[in-house]
Design a protein around this nucleic acid. Structure first.
Lengths: 234, 234
DNA sequence: CCAAAAGTGTTATGCTTACACCCATGT
DNA sequence: ACATGGGTGTAAGCATAACACTTTTGG
């Protein structure tokens, strides 16, 4: 026989979680908050919470994130996967749908006391299954940086190629050549030159052209290179 | 105040749906069942149903599919996305997590009366948002055929290259050259020669070598060609 | 004039498609 | 012998990485 408390616990059984990533100080960092109470008191967790009866999952993520970071700063939000292991939450049965959120470099949202940015390469101990979610979020980001225009979501509105190289290098986790990055992104027509010029580092040097992304909607820019259709048909 | 009926209705608010695909008659086909009652009576729908309190989503898909098709035939099952639009089900609030299931060519599972295979290129009218789910399942399949070894899940245990070409062509929706398919899959070491030989078509001709996939676990075989790390570091 | 940073030209490489040609078998 | 389909050799195309070299500024 169910009690009212049971029924409410059951209705609250779907949560959302957000892996919010930003390139800060030339590192890929994630937004985490420190749990105050059990379970996992003191450990760090992804922001999120339970959904209400009349909102979509994406709306719910935005609503919960609003407490942590100004949601207008979110340049991209996409669903990752839904976790359903009955034992993932020791307290009660809870499904959780994970999202990837991105914040452009350069902005520094005001975050609450218990919340902090952490380098994804040097994470503290995380609660629940959040560490695995965060790493899969990074994998998704790395993949999409390569075959879509998702860079727009990590880059500021305008940038030099050296700045963009640093952002890509931080997100991808390996060095990136500004020379080759420029050619790839220009040939694919992801970038356009604004005509402005700016200095990057401290010393002298030739001023860099300032670019912007041509589109801020996600587009697939490079269909998988393998097994593509013959050029004649289709 | 909640009643027991309410609480059960609420706990039943998470469903699973499966887009089960197989190459049949050189076409990519999907398993659909025809709804008997409202809403959407007479329209075709993806198999699925609500989850129970103690199963994972993947287990639930397998359980619901067991009524439609022998689950031992399923060569692959992966999660697609979770749909959450409050209006997607007119009767009640219901989240649904969609899965992609694959059945190898050659087997012909016994299916119930109300269930039939339909060519994905020539679908009947589908209930709910199932048409969009089915098309996104096909996109996922097409992508993964290109950069993983997922072909193992569509191919029979042993096959000639001509047979494999027909399977890839049906799934990808464009012609595929057996010559080039062989070279790509052999160089990536996805296939191995069993040493056996067999005739493919009706007439004469040189007998074809019989191959099998080296692995039947999903593996990423071609990291994105673009923006890969420099060969020196990492 | 020199250092520093940006950007271009050029070459090398790897993977792919396209296609001609050789191979093995049945009738 | 010849038709039929299987398989290999080879050339061409394309996108990328690598790197030398030129350009443009500040001091």
């Amino acid at each position: 026989m169910y009690t009212v408390a049971d029924s409410q616990a059951k209705t609250a059984a779907h949560a959302v979680l957000a892996a919010v990533l930003q390139v800060r100080d030339c590192e890929l960092q994630a937004l985490l908050w420190q749990r105050g109470r059990e379970p996992y008191a003191g450990l760090w967790a992804l922001p999120g919470g339970v959904i209400t009866a009349d909102e979509t999952l994406a709306d719910s993520v935005r609503r919960h994130l609003a407490e942590k970071v100004d949601v207008r700063e979110l340049s991209h939000l996409e669903q990752l996967e839904t976790l359903s292991d009955p034992g993932r939450n020791p307290a009660r049965r809870e499904l959780a749908t994970a999202y990837l959120g991105l914040v452009p470099a350069g902005v520094d949202p005001h975050v609450p006391e218990d919340t902090r940015w952490h380098a994804v390469d040097d994470l503290p101990e995380l609660a629940y299954d959040h560490a695995a979610i965060l790493l899969s979020a990074r994998e998704r980001l790395r993949g999409k940086l390569s075959y879509t225009n998702l860079g727009f979501a990590l880059a500021p509105p305008r940038f030099t190629l050296a700045e963009l190289r640093d952002i890509y290098a931080a997100a991808l986790g390996h060095t990136v050549s500004a020379t080759n990055l420029q050619r790839v992104l220009l040939r694919r027509r992801l970038l356009e030159d604004t005509g402005e010029r700016r200095h990057y580092g401290s010393g002298g040097g030739r001023p860099a052209a300032i670019y912007r992304f041509r589109s801020t909607e996600l587009e697939i820019t490079d269909q998988f290179a393998v097994l593509r259709p013959p050029t004649m048909d289709r």
